[in-house]
Amino acid sequence: MPIIEFKNVSHNDILHNITGSFRESRITTFVGPSGAGKSTCLKMINGLLSPDAGEVLYRGKDIFDYDISGLRKTVSMAFQSSPMIHGTVYDNLNLPCEVHGEVLGEARAAELLDMVELDASFLTRPVREISGGERSRISLARTFVHRPEVLLLDEITSSLDYVLVRDIERLVMRLQSEQDVTVIWITHDLEQARRVSHDMWFLRKGELIEYGPAEFIDRTENPEIRSFVKGEH
């Protein structure tokens, strides 16, 4: 049974009748040209947006039939620009707890940093002093605070240089396997998608053109995907 399913999902003029699913414990990437509706899909899985028509199912149940606040702890999201609040790295790691009136223990905070290969001395560092690569790692660590089952990543490497991009890819792949999470990852970089994906969704102009095991991207007969792969979009 898929962990997440889209059934005839439409949203404004952005998504048109999307039907597809995501396998559990896999990395699925959203690929496709800009304006395809990839971020809209991702926000729907976290419940930040609702479909105008159709439904998004989590383990067979409409996500809005769950307590949405609780579901968002299970389906965690990292944003493109790794937004941070003013304060220290600890303040930012503690944010998912703080908003529920809880406090993140220092040992757990250090453990989260260790997961993303940063040492505990970062906890007291002001976020304004950290680099872009460290920021991405901290953003990633923050998504693990509530031990999620699903990780939604919105172009988290788009502002990083090639070496850091490969570091983050390796990190996500390791964490996915170690923590046994389902990762749904938007990328504009087809090479990155090839490197990290078990499965892919190819979207164009709000339509899901094809989805399935990642190999389809290079074997498909679909002219739109072939044209995108050749770099003609």
């Binding site: 930040l48 949405i68 968002r72 908003v99 529920h100």
Partner: peptide, 17 residues
């Protein structure tokens, strides 16, 4: 706006966001 959506994405209430 991004921080507001970030906090909501963690399951925070509108007031926290």
């Amino acid at each position: 706006e991004e921080v507001i959506e970030l906090i909501l994405s963690f399951g925070g209430a509108p007031e926290a966001a």
